[in-house]
Amino acid sequence: MPIVQFTPFSSLVQPAFWHALTDLKIDVLRLSDEAIPVHGSYSAGRSVKDRESGAEIALGCNLSVGGESFSKEDKAPAHSVSATGVFKNYNTIEEFKAADKTALFAQVSDEIWKSITVDRSTAQLSRFLLITFADLKKYKYYYWFAFPAFAAKPAWEIQGDWKGASDEFSDTFLSAIESAQLASPRAFFLVRPKAGSDEPELAPVEEYDTFFANVNPVERTIAFLDPSAAPGNPGWPLRNLLTYLAALHPATSHRVLCWRDAERPAGAPFKSRFGVVSQGAGTGEAASTEKPAAVGWEKNVQGKLGPRVADLAPMMDPTRLADQAV
């Protein structure tokens, strides 16, 4: 059986985030390089149809941070779910380079692991790390995201292939999930059919034991808001969700619904995907006690492990702006 390959998160930093960071750095942080909380958001994966070639083009699997990412109230934009993270800004490029990234990464993945095993919560599954160096005079921002995800050993495998959700569920069933997700999007949720009807019932993943108590395993479905739009690759959040399930609710296989229908026009087909995943042979030993290894540093534009740079001089530098003004 093929191994499940997950689409990694890509960071999308809105310029407003850098403006917020500039203000924060000057007015609040000053020379402090303490880690502070930050939050971002992601929404269902989207694909767009190219009108010329007719091909469906999947847009990125983005986790975005914006101007409100440092604010206390953690409210995701419409149709998105929020993810919290750790933010650390360095005062010099040397410190930024010399930062002990392995330790920072381990710390965040520890926090995720603790939230799974101790708190039994899904709220921190998409926790991320962001380190920056802001060259305020030149309007340049060096940054590096990490989205820790636990690597399952042995890897998760997909039975058959990922298929359209409509192949598994009826349209009325999916429409009911859609309206629930539109009303209040959830990052992770459980689905079971209501006894004797074609209506779904949803519940938070934390209620796994009670919600699935008397449900036939072939009717238990685990769903998550999928930021990926690639048909054969579920998004990054599923990785830690599967780790969560393996640690707390081990089962031979899980039915997974990758929820991708946030902006479906009436009558259009559903884009969500469905698949049954199981862990390869050799499961069981030391499954839930040891913290598995984690991966997830974001690659830079060249496709290597390295920081990215946002050069906002053309959009922030007053002299450059004056040059192109009418």
């Binding site: 191994i3 499940v4 390959q5 997950f6 689409t7 990694p8 694909s47 091909a55 469906e56 083009i57 999947a58 847009l59 990125g60 380079k97 990234k101 392995t102 990464f105 690597a151 399952a152 890897a155 998760w156 739009a229 690639a230 048909p231 054969g232 690759n233 990785r239 290894a293 991966v295 540093w297 496709g303 290597k304 492990l305 390295g306 920081p307």
Partner: peptide, 29 residues
Amino acid sequence: MEEEGLEAGDDEATAAPKAAAPSSGVIEA
């Protein structure tokens, strides 16, 4: 700034960004 030692080897469960175009016709951006 490139850090080779950060992650040991290639992670088999990470979808390679340049994966072959999938059969169902959706192309990655």
